[in-house]
């Protein structure tokens, strides 16, 4: 067995996680992309995507999760998500109003429709996902630090 398997939970949990983690991630992406035509959206989808990473961290230990999503990348995603959202809002000025939906709205209930709303969902997803993962990581790391001192 590789070193990856020394840390984290039992083999059963790891095997199940390996099966489900991709599905959770895909489901999260689905929720984000269909935010404008079905229930859900950037916030819910972002949380589900983050849950897949948290799932990895719980089953395999923090090393594996950090390899896929480092702390720097997290803060990058968070700031970029917020700036992206703000950028979309400021883009509205080109049409005469702050936050105006300037992109063509297309046919209702299609995936590529509703103008800026899908883009806003993606921005929110980045911000919320990175934010919630950061909070989780902060709690985990704090806990590990206090363990060491004791």
């Amino acid at each position: 067995m590789s070193k990856e398997h020394d840390k984290g939970m039992s083999l059963i949990v790891k095997t199940i996680t390996r099966l489900t983690v991709g599905l959770i991630l895909l489901y999260g992406i689905y929720i984000v992309l269909h935010g404008h035509v079905s229930p859900g959206g950037g916030f819910a989808g972002g949380v589900i995507i983050t849950l897949s990473f948290i799932h990895l961290m719980l089953a395999f230990g923090k090393g594996v999760a950090f390899k896929r999503m480092s702390k720097n990348m997290m803060s990058l995603f968070e700031s970029f998500g917020a700036l992206f959202f703000l950028g979309i809002a400021v883009l509205g000025f080109s049409g005469g109003y702050f936050f105006l939906n300037v992109i063509s709205k297309g046919e209702p209930f299609r995936l590529f429709s509703a103008g800026i709303i899908p883009l806003c969902n993606i921005a929110i997803c980045m911000k919320v996902g990175a934010g919630i993962f950061a909070i989780f990581v902060a709690l985990v790391l704090l806990d590990l630090d206090t363990d060491k001192k004791e």
């Binding site: 803060s75 990058l76 968070e78 700031s79 970029f80 917020a82 700036l83 703000l86 400021v90």
Partner: peptide, 8 residues
């Protein structure tokens, strides 16, 4: 905008 540019 300034806040998030700075954090970046």
């Amino acid at each position: 905008g300034a806040a998030f540019l700075l954090s970046l």
